[in-house]
Amino acid sequence: MYPENFRYTKEHEWVSVEGETGTVGITDHAQAELGDIVYVDLPKVGAHIEQGKSLGSVESVKAVSDIYSPVSGEVVAINTDLADHPEKLNTDPHGDAWLVKIKLGNPGEVQNLMTSADYLSYVGAEK
């Protein structure tokens, strides 16, 4: 369910690191809690983001949820496809529906995050 090469936050975001870049998204648990996602608000390319701070938001019909960045750094790409297809966040949150790519400002930060096993027991406990 939760890829082992990802790291996870308590606010239900994931990051997958390749080289200097981290790809960020929300977890399957997050999308299930939100229900049908209708809108995604993402930062601009070039924006500087800090770990634990809001980088945007996702909306369902009756809720808005901030996305807290798992890592710090500069936004180098955003998933523009989500503007027209926010529903992909419900169907493929760990794949096609990634949100942003961030050039890591502090690669060591990733160590603060949960492994997939930790996250699985965390969301298990949350229920």
Binding site: Y39, E59, S60, V61, K62, A63, V64
Partner: peptide, 9 residues
């Protein structure tokens, strides 16, 4: 588009 409004946000 009610997420703009006070009862949600």
């Amino acid at each position: 588009l009610s997420t703009r409004e006070q009862h949600i946000r």
